[in-house]
Design a binder for these strands. Structure first.
Length: 256
DNA sequence: AATCAATGCAACCGCCCACTT
DNA sequence: TAAGTGGGCGGTTGCATTGAT
């Protein structure tokens, strides 16, 4: 709807995403996860920068996104949180499953800002947050955000849990898979495996075969890749320092 | 029906931080 | 310790749509 498609100087496409691009990105991430956003476009067959892919996935393609109008309860939460913490959109998104930071930010600017002003709920602005002694938000931003994240987990009422909310809770597994900064070892290893597989395919197969590779269900039919992943799994599990990576690698069990 | 302004929102940009080398 | 890299965040842009005149 928005931007006219164009290309930048590096040949990377910009602007609105086509349905074909969406499908490629979604198929790839659902199969392999997003283990490295910068490398992902290459393997997914997209002429986009990694950031663009990440944004498209986060804001539009994730399976757990909630589309449509905001409920009154959601809007009240946003107003309350904005009153408490200002423009912490990502922290707000953590409190509103299915909503993205970008979505919340847009909704705030287009709908809620006016309403909050009318309701007199903007008496405390970002600037005077600090003047009234709440500057610890800035000083301990990271800790505070972590506390928010914990709150958001606790906030899910088990009695309200449906298959959909189960997905909501399960899905961040894929996000953490690559978002944690301690996953470099895992990402590097994944990169090796993917590079090897990709190179092997490129060298030995025609384009139509490669196309088939991306469009077929991911069954780990490639023995070499399967063994590599299993070896990686064992290797990481044997290292106490990478237990979190090992836990995340249970993703592969899902595929087996 | 035509024009203009306001609105909605997808996407881009630049910066920052954590981490590796 | 410094430089390089990748991911995430918040601010901003700009086009399509909608509503008012």
């Amino acid at each position: 709807m928005v931007r006219t498609p164009c290309s930048n100087k590096n040949g990377m496409k910009k602007g609105l995403w086509s349905g074909e691009e969406d499908n490629k990105l979604k198929d790839y991430i659902l199969r392999y996860g997003h283990w490295n956003w910068r490398k992902l476009p290459k393997y997914a067959g997209l002429s986009r920068c990694g950031k663009s892919c990440r944004l498209r996935w986060m804001n539009y393609l994730q399976p757990n996104l909630k589309k449509g109008d905001y409920s009154e309860e959601e809007e009240n939460i946003i107003i309350k949180l904005h009153h408490e913490r200002g423009n912490k959109w990502s922290a707000m998104a953590a409190k509103l499953p299915g909503r993205t930071d970008n979505d919340i930010k847009n909704h705030w600017h287009t709908h809620l800002k006016k309403r909050a002003k009318q309701n007199g709920k903007l008496e405390v602005t970002n600037e005077n947050f600090q003047s009234i002694g709440t500057c610890q938000f800035e000083d301990s931003r990271k800790r505070d955000d972590q506390e928010w994240a914990l709150d958001s987990v606790v906030a899910i009422d088990p009695s309200q849990q449906t298959s959909e909310t189960s997905l909501l809770q399960a899905e961040p597994f894929f996000g953490e898979f690559s978002s944690s900064r301690s996953d470099y070892a895992l990402n590097s290893a994944m990169e090796r495996i993917m590079d090897d597989s990709f190179t092997s395919l490129s060298e030995t197969h025609h384009a139509d075969t490669i196309e088939t590779f991306w469009n077929q269900p991911f069954l780990l039919e490639n023995e070499t890749t399967t063994n590599d992943v299993q070896a990686l799994h064992s290797e990481l599990l044997s290292q106490n320092s990478l237990i979190s990576c090992g836990e995340r690698l249970s993703m592969y069990d899902y595929y087996y």
